[in-house]
Design a binder for these strands. Structure first.
Lengths: 216, 216
DNA sequence: GCGTTGACTCAACAACCGTAGACCGTTGCG
DNA sequence: CGCAACGGTCTACGGTTGTTGAGTCAACGC
């Protein structure tokens, strides 16, 4: 019986917040493997939420465990240390195939589309925000953003653009996309945050076209 | 030399790094007022450097004091608490007059110019980077970025652009500028970081013109 | 049924951080 | 000169954090 009660009076009251998902992973009886998978997923989901909301430093392992309804030590058992937990939490999905197959005139809308669908999919959203939120203050988050999110896609786009300015233009496209993402979803600059996906696409599409295809 | 070694020894051994500016603020004898001003400035400079390099959480008051060559308690005496120190450190200069007087066709280059001159002026650079570095994880840094750096200038630009899309376009201009700044100076995306100021201005000027003045 | 494995908890450690208060020597003023 | 004010240091407290190791109990294979 894994009590869903308060951790009595040990260290300090781990009363973070939540009436959210207080029940421990398995009040129900389950086969070991299935149970393990569920706990792992529960921890990961809690970690993603907190890393996304609070950032790496302020999201404590104790708070993650409390949100997942388990003991802090269990988090260590699953992910080794806080860094490992973060590495498993922060994820960004890039559609390489779609991007490499896009023609020059399709690049702007493809990029915008990838961005929005990623940020508006509840499945991917928290992982992406966790990554973005920490990319300025956390080394490994920066690494993922720089390499997987920026450099790699940029290389493909640069090839599509061509010329000796291809890389620079692709880089500036990436910078612009990051800027819009941050402004809308992290900084929540009103003018951008309140705008609909369609508004932004309509305004930005010709602008980005002027960036990647200046001769058009 | 900006090595940021982590404290190796125990609590009492505050031997951070040395050789840097180890001599205390006044080995020399100075009038009280002058002496006070100098220590204050020294602390602020050390704080700016560390907040810019490491971010708010990882930049400890002990490390700031060590870099300034003084006692940690003195920092508290000058700035009240860590939050106060940060508020005094993180600064962004916006040239309101220049921006409000710019004609529509001048807006792009004015914005780019303000950005670069701010980031390349050693006097303002660290304060700006300290602000940017923490704007995703620190509430008061976010407040300054959102209000003073984004919203306020955007309102002026929106007025210059006019129309019912003015605010959105001004917001997206701001988002783009932030994106380029982060990519070049914080994330250090190679394609953008290695590009010269002139390269970026040349490529982006017509693009930003298409954003703020789509009818041109 | 029984021993073993594995999921999970409990209690604690060691380090570090921001901060407070007592203390010291010099400077400035009457 | 003498005394108050001030710049500055020293020491320590209370709290939080990541992390560990021993221990508990149900699930599993035989």
């Amino acid at each position: 019986m894994t009590t869903s009660s308060l951790p009595a009076g040990s260290d300090s009251a781990d009363r973070e917040q939540r009436g959210d998902l207080e029940q421990h992973v398995g009040t129900e009886r389950l086969p070991r493997e299935e149970r393990r998978r569920r706990t792992e997923a529960t921890i990961l989901e809690a970690a993603r939420e907190l890393f996304a909301e609070l950032g790496f430093e302020r999201a404590t392992i104790r708070a993650v465990a409390a949100r997942a309804g388990i003991d802090p030590a269990l988090v260590m058992q699953y992910y080794g240390n806080k860094e490992g937990l973060f590495a498993a939490s922060a994820r960004w999905h890039v559609d390489h195939k779609r991007l490499s197959e896009a023609s020059l005139s399709d690049v702007p809308l493809t990029a915008l589309d990838d961005l929005f669908s990623g940020m508006e999919d509840p499945e991917r959203r928290d992982g992406a925000i966790a990554l973005l939120r920490n990319c300025l203050t956390h080394e490994s988050a920066l690494g993922v953003i720089r390499d997987d999110v920026m450099c790699e896609p940029q290389a493909m786009i640069a090839k599509t653009i061509g010329g000796d300015e291809g890389e620079l233009r692709a880089g500036l496209l990436g910078a612009t996309m990051i800027g819009i993402t941050l402004a809308k979803y992290l900084l929540e600059i009103p003018a951008v945050a309140q705008a609909s996906r369609e508004d932004i696409e309509r305004v930005m599409a010709p602008v980005l076209t002027a960036l990647v295809n200046p001769d058009a």
